[in-house]
Simulated scan of single mutants.
Amino acid sequence: MQLKEPGIVVGVSNRHVHLSQEDLERLFGKGYKLTPTKDLGQPGQFACDERVDLVGPKGTIENVRILGPVRKNSQVEISRTDSFKLGINAPVRDSGDVQGTPGIKIKGPNGEIELAKGVIIAKRHIHMLPSQAEHYGVKDKDLVSVYCDKEGRRLIFQDVLVRVSEKYALEFHVDTDEANAALLNNGDYVKIVEKF
């Protein structure tokens, strides 16, 4: 097995919500603006002070963090484990690909909304700049394999989506279920597998 250098930093993505400005105002009040609390690994992205409750057919998950900035369309990203608690059969999708996905009720302090679609389990992926894609020998939308070298839980993630843009920073994103399976934490490093 050959591994491409250098390693890529891991970003573990917990359940979260992206909101449109319209939905944000329905949940928090007219003219409401998000309150950034922490910058995320991708430029311009941030975790917010604001939290909401997700209400599914079988259960509720409270205090789910909103990520900013606001988007054109609202979207909810959960893990497979979360889907069991909520009673929602969320598909694995790339962010933004919500056609044919289930909806959910979201409760905020000033109201609630019912999304007709938008609940996904995010496809594991790597963000990178065009120069980094050239270095690794990949292009946007390629699928690669990623090796995780944590003793006792070494594994290879296959079908990892490559996302290339001048707006990105180099980072491997997995959800909490995937991270737990490989004993991965924020700030760990993984490597793209060239051949195996």
Rank of each mutant, 00 (worst) to 15 (best):
S145K: 12
I156S: 06
V146C: 06
S145V: 06
I113C: 03
F157M: 07
V98Y: 09
G118P: 01
R154H: 13
F84W: 13
C148Q: 08
D97I: 03
A122F: 00
V160D: 06
G152C: 02
L143K: 15
T176E: 14
K141S: 14
I156W: 10
Y147Q: 09
S145N: 08
L161Y: 14
G103S: 09
V160N: 11
S145R: 09
A122V: 00
E112L: 03
S131T: 10
V160C: 07
A116M: 13
S131R: 12
A122G: 02
I113V: 05
D159F: 08
I156C: 04
E114S: 11
V138T: 09
E134Y: 09
Y136I: 06
Q99K: 15
K117D: 08
R154Q: 14
S165H: 10
E151A: 15
S165M: 05
D82W: 00
N89S: 12
E114D: 12
T176Q: 13
E171R: 11
R153E: 14
S165I: 02
K117P: 03
D94W: 11
V92C: 11
F172R: 07
V162L: 09
K107C: 04
G108D: 01
A116G: 13
G152A: 04
E151V: 15
A181G: 09
H125I: 00
N180V: 11
S145W: 08
F84Q: 10
Q132S: 06
K139M: 12
D140Y: 07
T101K: 09
L129D: 02
D142S: 06
H125Q: 02
K139W: 11
I121W: 02
I126F: 04
A181E: 07
E112M: 05
E166Y: 05
P109Y: 01
L86C: 01
K107G: 02
N110G: 10
G103Q: 06
D140V: 06
A181D: 08
D177F: 03
T176K: 07
V138C: 06
G111N: 05
K150M: 10
L170N: 06
H125R: 01
K107P: 05
D140C: 05
F157L: 10
D175L: 12
I88W: 00
L155M: 14
R124Q: 02
I126L: 01
Q99M: 13
K150F: 12
K141G: 10
V160H: 12
D94Q: 13
A116H: 15
M128E: 02
G118V: 00
L155R: 10
L129G: 02
G137P: 06
A90M: 01
I156N: 11
A179N: 11
E151Q: 12
S95P: 02
Q99R: 15
C148F: 04
F157K: 06
V98A: 09
V160P: 10
L115F: 07
D175N: 15
V174Y: 11
H127K: 00
H135M: 15
D140S: 04
I121F: 03
M128T: 04
K167N: 14
